[in-house]
C-alpha cells in the first residue's frame, strides 16, 4: 500500500450511471490486476474504495458507478483537482494459474478490474461482459483492442446475447469451447451463479473478487470480514480475490 496525491487528468461519463476517472501520480504501489484504490473525498469520513481498471506509466484509471453522495460529487470533479489516494490495496488476481484459455466474466460495475487482467494476457482471453441493458454497456471496444474475444450479454436482450453471463457461458460451452481457469468480478448474486455453474457444474477453477462495505480498506478494522474454508479473511486485505476452493457461501 502507498499513500499519495493524484491529479485528475480525465473524468468523463461512459453510461447514464458509470464514469471513468484517470488519476496521475505514483502508481508503483499497484502490483496486480484486481487490486483497488481508496480515495479520500472532502466532506466524507470514509474513503471510497474503487477497483483499478487500468494502470499506465504514471496514471491509474478507475470506472465508478454513481451510487451515493460521494460518487455523485466525484462526477463534478474537474481535471487538475488533487486527491489523496491509497493505492495497491488488496491481493489482486494471480495470473500464473490462467493456463492457455482463461475466461474472464464481469458484471456491471465489476467489469473494470477485468480490463487490466485482460491486458496482462497475450493469448486473447475470452471475456463475457454482462449488463442490464444496451444503454449500460461500456468498454467493449477497449477489451477488443486489448486482444480479448468479447461476448456481451444483456438481461433485457437489447445488446448481445439475451440473458445473463451464465447464459453466455453456456453458449460458449455449446460451441465446444474449453477453459483452463476463470477470473470474475460482479454483484453477489452473479458471483454465486458463476460459482455454481462454472466451478461446480462445469468443473473450472477460478478466482472471484468480492465486494463489501469497508471501513479502512487496508486490514485494520475488521469491517469487511468473510468466513472461508480456511478461516476468517478480510476482503480488503486477504482479498478481494478468493479462490473457488476456499469460498464458503453464507447467505
Amino acid at each position: 500500500m502507498k499513500q499519495g496525491l493524484f491529479t485528475i487528468s480525465e473524468n468523463r461519463q461512459l453510461t447514464p450511471s458509470t464514469w471513468l476517472m484517470k488519476l496521475d501520480g505514483d502508481v508503483s504501489g499497484i502490483t496486480a490486476p484486481g487490486q483497488f484504490i481508496n480515495i479520500k473525498l472532502d466532506g466524507h469520513f470514509l474513503r471510497r474504495p474503487i477497483s483499478v481498471c487500468n494502470v499506465e506509466e504514471g496514471s491509474v484509471t478507475i470506472i465508478y458507478k454513481v451510487l451515493g453522495k460521494g460518487t455523485d460529487e466525484m462526477t463534478r470533479f474537474e481535471t487538475g483537482k488533487e486527491l489523496d489516494v491509497l493505492t495497491g490495496l488488496g491481493n489482486g488476481y494471480d495470473l500464473s494459474e490462467a493456463g492457455d484459455t482463461p475466461l474472464l466474466i464481469g458484471g456491471g460495475v465489476g467489469i473494470p478490474p477485468l480490463y487490466l487482467t485482460a491486458r496482462c494476457f497475450r493469448n486473447h482471453p475470452t471475456v463475457i461482459l454482462g449488463f442490464n441493458s444496451a444503454d449500460e454497456v461500456y468498454y467493449v471496444k477497449e477489451f477488443r483492442r486489448a486482444g480479448a474475444k468479447v461476448i456481451v450479454a444483456t438481461a433485457d436482450g437489447s445488446s448481445g446475447i439475451s440473458g445473463t453471463v451464465i447464459d453466455a457461458f453456456k453458449v460458449l460451452l455449446g460451441r465446444g469451447e474449453t477453459f483452463t481457469h476463470f477470473y470474475t468480478c460482479g454483484p453477489g448474486p452473479m458471483l454465486k451463479a458463476v460459482y455454481d455453474e462454472v466451478y461446480e457444474k462445469a468443473g473450472i477453477s477460478g478466482q472471484m473478487s468480492f465486494e463489501e462495505r469497508m471501513g479502512c480498506g487496508f486490514g485494520a478494522c475488521m469491517g469487511c470480514s468473510m468466513k472461508t474454508k480456511y478461516g476468517n479473511k478480510r476482503i480488503c486485505k486477504d482479498g478481494p480475490v478468493f479462490r473457488t476452493e476456499e469460498i464458503l457461501w453464507q447467505k
Binding site: 466524507h44 469520513f45 470514509l46 463489501e212 462495505r213 469497508m214 471501513g215 478494522c221 475488521m222 469491517g223 469487511c224 470480514s225 468473510m226
Partner: peptide, 15 residues
C-alpha cells in the same frame, strides 16, 4: 456484514 456505515463526521461499526 455489512458492519460499517458512514455518518457525518464519523462512522458506525458493528464488528
Amino acid at each position: 456484514t455489512p458492519r460499517i456505515a458512514e455518518c457525518p463526521a464519523g462512522m458506525l461499526n458493528s464488528v
